[in-house]
Amino acid sequence: MRRTRRRLAVAALGLLLAGCSTQVAGRPSPATSGTPEGDRGLVEQYFTDLNASADDGASTQRDFLRRTQHPDYTDRLCDLGDLILRIEPAMSTFRADPDWVPPESGSGERPRGTVYVLGVSISIRQQGALLGEQIGSQRVVVLEGRAYGFSPCPTG
């Protein structure tokens, strides 16, 4: 009798556990954002897409820069006219920049999201002619799984 109760208890426990398990189809994969490694991939893709837009011409690149302008700074777009930018990131310099505030931010508030900084090489073209090249730093922000930039403004 005692043995029978024990077998029933083990069987009931087995049925109970079987009812509580859940199987998910597919294979596990690492997160694509929210971690520096995942965000790095989003930032790399941002520059890949930026340069692809340059290959399609000035109007396509203007549209890309408008769509990827950080949502808190959509009122600060600059008109590049017919200038085309090609930006090559030095991903080995990629790092978080948690204290950065855009210089033109009157409030001194940081942009929402995770701010990253990296070295870049920028070439500027107009109607196919190289106008100049520059090396500098650029910030890209990852917010809610998307990479955003800040539209560059030509100076003097």
Results as ranks from 00 to 15, higher is better:
144 E>L: 02
91 M>C: 06
129 A>C: 01
41 G>N: 13
77 L>E: 13
65 L>R: 03
45 Q>F: 03
130 L>D: 03
55 D>K: 15
51 N>P: 11
8 L>V: 04
11 A>C: 09
95 R>G: 02
103 P>E: 12
90 A>H: 12
5 R>D: 11
60 T>Y: 12
55 D>Y: 08
36 P>T: 07
87 I>G: 11
135 I>W: 04
58 A>R: 14
98 P>R: 11
153 C>H: 07
42 L>W: 05
87 I>R: 12
83 L>A: 14
75 D>A: 13
60 T>C: 11
106 G>T: 07
119 G>K: 09
155 T>H: 07
46 Y>I: 06
18 A>H: 06
125 R>N: 09
89 P>D: 05
90 A>E: 15
124 I>F: 12
4 T>G: 10
138 Q>V: 05
107 S>I: 03
16 L>G: 11
146 R>N: 08
96 A>L: 11
141 V>F: 06
64 F>T: 01
111 P>W: 01
91 M>T: 09
153 C>P: 03
54 A>H: 07
11 A>S: 12
6 R>P: 00
136 G>I: 02
121 S>Q: 12
103 P>N: 07
78 C>Q: 09
56 D>L: 15
134 Q>T: 00
126 Q>N: 13
126 Q>G: 08
55 D>T: 14
8 L>T: 00
151 S>V: 01
97 D>H: 02
85 L>M: 12
20 C>S: 02
95 R>K: 11
9 A>R: 14
26 G>Y: 06
132 G>A: 06
29 S>W: 10
87 I>V: 15
62 R>S: 15
